[in-house]
Design a protein around this nucleic acid. Structure first.
Length: 426
RNA sequence: GCGGUCGUGGCGAAGUGGUUAACGCACCGGAUUGUGGUUCCGGCAUACGUGGGUUCGAUUCCCACCGGUCGCCCCA
């Protein structure tokens, strides 16, 4: 037997119903915020991620699905969405559109070669948005508001918006120097990873779980102390806008994002719900001024975020939120006898063309068993068509909720059901 | 990539170094020859992750691998 590759999954109907529901919710919310959908390829030139995401990141160094195609091009299954969106923004010169910022959303699978566990798959699906062309702190707040709205709109309560500022280049350089100076005397006491981080990306040391109790960690210089005036002011305004909207957040000065392109605003949304394992991050995002330029476009600020659908659904489970899925069927047709069977096929076809959900038996089941099936499918109405009904040009219509049953002329069945189905629900 | 743990029919779950591997759910049929959700009775199933090894004999013991899961790393 051949199973799915490691870290991937099949979504069976019971699950896809949920996926469709949250996808629709997300799309509708994006429309509300005036974000439009963009669809980019699932694989890109490897170079895009090396330059966009950053050569020193874990993603690029050890998590990419990279392969050469038959033309010997190096391609990579996308590990995240922002690089592709920015690439498309530059390639199609969307910066030339009269309405800016360019506000885009996407839904699609991402790929990272990692050791799978619950909430971490090698293929996973992200919802994301990107707003390109505005350096207004209000749009940072807008993106966070949208992110929170998705979760809250689905009924989640145990959420935490964690916020930090990474500052601009000047602030970051100054902070970086300060960090190196601070940790250098303690280098030998730090874990192996952190010793490497000290040279490459000292910011990462702050995020280390092994060394989190080290004295030097507590006294380490915070980026917030090194923000220059512009960065500081920007951060304050972002917070003001969040306050204005009544969106709660906590500042975590150690919040570091895993991708190189981030600056200024960085945030994560986490779940507090019990029953969540080691992985509590539901989504993450931030500002990436400079990325468009890095990828060959004009100087254009940008901000975005992405969430994992798998983790979103886990959070719903953890909080016991049941999605209002409609798993009923308008109508089930039961036929008895060869002639009735023929007529039933015609009837089903007629009703379906009228837009009514209909199904019938294809297993040669007996009358009683067909009723059982109708019940199991949550059929609202059952149409009974036997030789007797056929002879009289009628069909029995049974309301499965009330048990009431009446005879309708076959010629009238379409209009009758339409009335029942549209009138009875919604 | 590292460590812990687990892997029995469609699902859940017992169990044993040795003839036919429990049980529950689900499914099918009957009681009720054209009317569902209950009950009772009966029936069904390609089941011991894969490959080696130990043994007269392994689903059971050992090893490796694969996969799940938990934690680390890191993130979505």
């Amino acid at each position: 037997m051949i199973n799915v590759p490691r870290g991937t999954q099949d979504l069976l109907p019971e699950e896809t119903e949920k996926w469709q529901y949250v996808e629709e919710k997300f799309k509708a919310l994006c429309r509300t915020y005036n974000y439009q959908e963009i669809r980019t390829p699932i694989f890109e030139h490897t170079e895009l991620f090396q330059r966009g995401v950053g050569d020193t990141t874990d993603i690029v160094q050890k998590e990419m699905y990279t392969f050469n195609d038959r033309g010997d091009r190096s391609l990579t299954l996308r590990p995240e969405g922002t690089a592709s969106v920015v690439r498309a923004f530059v390639q199609h010169k969307l910066f030339g559109n009269p309405t800016q910022p360019t506000k885009l959303f996407y839904i699609g699978p991402m790929f990272r070669y990692e050791r799978p566990q619950q909430g971490r798959m090698r293929q996973f699906v992200q919802f994301g948005v990107e707003a390109l062309g505005s350096a207004d702190p209000a749009i940072d707040a807008e993106v966070m508001a949208l992110a929170m709205n998705i979760y809250e709109g689905l009924g989640l309560k145990s959420l935490k918006l964690v916020l930090n500022s990474l500052g601009d280049n000047e602030s970051r350089t100054n902070h970086r120097d300060a960090l190196m100076k601070h940790f250098e005397p303690h280098k030998e006491e730090l874990c192996n990873d952190c010793q490497v981080r000290l040279d490459k990306n000292p910011l990462r040391i702050l995020d280390c779980k092994k060394d989190k109790d080290h004295e030097a960690m507590k006294t380490a210089p915070s980026i917030l102390e090194y923000l220059n005036d512009y960065s500081q002011n920007y951060f304050e305004q972002v917070k003001d806008y969040l306050d204005q909207m009544g969106i709660e957040y906590v500042i975590d000065k150690n919040l570091v994002r895993g991708l190189d392109y981030y600056n200024h605003t960085a945030f994560e949304i986490m779940s507090n719900a019990s029953g969540f394992g080691a992985i509590t991050t539901l989504s993450g995002g931030g500002r990436y001024n400079g990325l468009v330029e890095d990828l060959g476009g004009p100087e254009t600020p940008g901000i975005g975020f992405a969430l994992s659908v798998e983790r979103l659904l886990m959070a719903l489970d953890a909080e016991g939120v049941a999605l209002p899925l409609d798993n009923s069927l308008d109508c089930y047709v039961i036929a008895m006898g060869d002639n009735a069977e023929k007529k039933a096929v015609e009837l089903v076809y007629t009703l379906r063309k009228a837009g009514i959900q209909v199904d019938k038996d294809y297993q040669g089941k007996k009358f009683k068993a067909q009723f059982k099936t109708a019940d199991r499918l949550n059929a609202k109405y059952v149409l009974i068509l036997g030789e007797e009904e056929l002879a009289n040009n009628v069909v029995n219509v049974k309301d499965m909720a009330t048990g009431e049953q009446k005879q309708i002329r076959i010629a009238d069945i379409e209009t009758t059901l339409e009335k029942l189905v549209t009138g009875g629900t919604n």
